[in-house]
Each structure stands twice: as C-alpha cells, then as structure tokens.
Design a protein around this nucleic acid. Structure first.
Lengths: 131, 131
DNA sequence: TATTTGACAAGAATCATTCTCATGTGATAA
DNA sequence: TTATCACATGAGAATGATTCTTGTCAAATA
C-alpha cells in the first residue's frame, strides 16, 4: 500500500486501490466515466456505483478535488495542493496553474460571508485547438 | 422595448421579453427552472424549450453569462460587466464581486494556450448558513 | 397572396449522477 | 470457531437537468 494512502482511513478494497492507482499522478482531470473505463479493464464487473462511492469518499477525505469547470460532467483532480486551472473553451482540456495570487477582498464586498477559499479559472484555447 | 435590448438582434417575442424582464436587474443568478417558474405565471404554456432556446440565444449575443458554480444545474448571470463570484458552500447562494484583480501569468505556465479571460470563485459560508 | 423563416410548445430522448437492494466480505465479539 | 455487524460491491432502476424532435403558428418578405 503506497505511503500516501495510509492516512485515508477508508477501507482499501482492490477496486478502490485500482481507482487510486489510476488517479495517482494523473494530470488529465478525468471524469467518472474516464475512471470507470480505465479501471474496468482490470475489473470487468466494476460498476459506476463503486466509482462514484469511491470518489465521494476520497473527496470527503480531502484526497481529491471535484472540478466544476466542465459543465457537461464533473471532473476530478487528484492533486490536492492549492492551485488554479486553465481550461480550453473548445475541447475542455484542463491544465494546472501552480502560481499563487494575492486575492484579498475588502470587507464590504463579502456581505457577511465567512471566506473559506478561492479558485481561479483561466479560459483559453489550447495549442491543439488553435491549429 | 427597453433601450438595452435594441442591439440584441434576436426576435423579441412576448415570451422572450418576459424572460428578459425577469432577468433584468436580477441578482439571484437563477437557474433555467427558476426562470421557467417565474415566467410561467404570465405565460402558462411556456415550455422549457423556449427558456433554453432563449438563454442560448442571449448567451451567444453576450447578453448573459452561464455560470458553472453550481454543480447540480447551470445558473445564469444577466450582469455582463466583468466581475467575479462568491458562493456559499452550504446553500449555493451566489453574490457578485465587483473588484478587479491583476492576474497575469508567466508564459511558461500557460503551455501554449491563447489566454482569453479568467474568473475567480470565492468560497464561503453566507450569513444565513452561519447561524 | 404565397412563401419562407424562425419561434413555440409538448413531450420524447439523452445522459450524468444517484439510489435501491440483494449479495458478499472482512473485522470483531461472543 | 462461529455469529454478528458494518460496510463495499454491482446490477439495474430512478432521477433530473438539458437537449432534441416534430407539428403548428405567426411575422416578415417576395
């Protein structure tokens, strides 16, 4: 069992390990379907229920982030260090932006909200789609 | 016909005017269903097709923005001036943040993307949900 | 007037996601 | 060891937002 999964405190079944192994180091920000298809090669009986249940558990533990950048489907990011995203408006490719910004807000603009965090979406056209 | 709709260049039917009138000045970032319910009071035969068609047309003309902040459904913002959003992680209330930020990126981080724009999501807990 | 164009509305279709439920399995208690 | 419990799995049904289809209608134009 990889060191990084030690503190997950969820039952690590073979299916869950396969999902974790697919996510580990993955920079493609896969959807549930991407994960399902990939893991199904190894576990032909894998069901979407298991994929979604596992993603939900990982999300709760803070191991992955759910992205709303793609309006057609949720996508997941296994990199839980703070970072932002750049998305191609044509093909929906997502790349990570590891660059810090100072984003403080004047009190009067937050209307009594207790601020928790932020996330920047950059929009653009990727190299492939420009051609 | 209100001045601001002059340059829309779409056919302004009664149904569309009702939708525009509901959106005009609306700061609640309504979903398609919110719009449907509101306009249905005036036009009982209103259908979702008309709501979605109209929203699509308005989006194309740059009159409204489609928001992806709420993963359960698309929400629409009739304010087309540049601004960011603050969303309550509990009730999904969205408020506008009219505050400008300098968000330039070093070339090496954009991986050949042609940058178009950006949008910041601030997360927090609203006054009501804090109680 | 005849024709064309595009909007409307009802409902069907699609599709991502969630739910249900029967079954299985590993851990723990007796 | 055996019984019980908690929870994961998987097949498929259900849900619900959005999109599509199709027939009808009305305004605009020739």
């Amino acid at each position: 069992m990889p060191e990084k999964y030690r503190n997950l405190h969820i039952k690590l079944t073979p299916q869950r390990l396969a999902i974790l192994s697919y996510l580990n180091g993955n920079r493609t920000h896969p959807s549930a379907e991407d994960i399902y298809k990939a893991v199904q090669k190894q576990y032909p009986t894998m069901s979407f229920a298991t994929v979604y249940n596992t993603l939900e558990a990982l999300k709760e533990k803070g191991n992955i982030r759910e992205l709303k950048l793609d309006s057609a489907k949720k996508r997941y990011d296994p990199d839980n260090t703070p970072h932002h995203h750049l998305i191609c408006v044509k093909c929906n490719e997502i790349v990570d932006i590891h660059w810090a910004f100072e984003l403080s807000l004047p009190d009067k603009t937050v209307q009594g909200f207790e601020l928790i965090g932020n996330h920047i979406e950059f929009y653009g056209i990727c190299r492939k789609c420009k051609k």
